[in-house]
Design a protein around this nucleic acid. Structure first.
Lengths: 132, 132
DNA sequence: CCGTATCCTTAACGATACTG
DNA sequence: CAGTATCGTTAAGGATACGG
């Protein structure tokens, strides 16, 4: 089956207006990576400063070694994170944001900050919703 | 994690200054809802216009009835989405963004648009990463 | 120290049938 | 039309042991 059926005409900005609502849209997995359970937190953390693996794991509370490793690989693959290996003994690996990663982290931080600022009201709304 | 989940009786909320990096941070599930697999797309869709259930399901390609229903409930619970029932026959239910939801959708759209704009470069980076 | 590989558990998901 | 309930499946996640 083709997902191109619901053709929303490509408008003025042409090229990149791929429909994010389309099931097979290539940007979906990328968005999933950066907004998923750990991706957003990792990007936010690296927005503060570069981190080494262990330090990052401590910073992002609750992430397992496996998931952190996996998340970092995805972020590196998509060009959001840069991985720098220092061949010392013991070895050190530093993770930092690429320019693209910084742009994303910036926007992500804006979202996080807004939600944090709304938390008192959100919690109140949740309580109202739950008690009926 | 057990289903004991979030302790609603915040014994002493002197600090809503909660650290998003902390495992038990109350904002994490909220962020999860809006950035999760369907939450973001639903908010983005409702940012275009209000939708009724079926129309929304058609707009967000690939979402099942079950997941759409569940996602909308969470978004309504957190005060991002307003649900309006019209007692007609057949019944109609219209979903729209609350002011809070609009603020989030705005930021989410910014993120989505940026990623879309980067897709050509991201795909190239992915290819480079995969071929080694 | 920086991970990867393995195993196993849990949560998310989709399809479908059914109710108000 | 707008969902909820149930069930089987799949993907995500955590713990840990071990290699580089």
């Amino acid at each position: 089956m083709s997902t191109a059926d619901l053709d929303r005409s490509v408008d003025d900005d042409a090229t990149l207006e791929a429909d994010v609502f389309a099931r097979a849209c290539l940007s979906r997995p990328v968005l999933q990576t950066i907004t998923g359970r750990w991706g957003g937190l990792v990007l936010a953390a690296l927005g503060e400063s570069p981190y080494r693996f262990s330090a990052l794991r401590r910073r992002v509370d609750g992430v397992s070694e496996r998931m952190l490793s996996q998340t970092l690989q995805q972020l590196e693959r998509d060009g959001f994170v840069h991985r720098e290996v220092q061949e010392t003994i013991p070895p050190k690996v530093e993770y930092s944001l690429t320019p693209r990663g910084e742009q994303v982290a910036e926007r992500l931080l804006g979202l996080i900050d807004f939600v944090e600022s709304q938390m008192p009201d959100i919690l109140a709304d949740q309580d109202r919703y739950d008690s009926r």
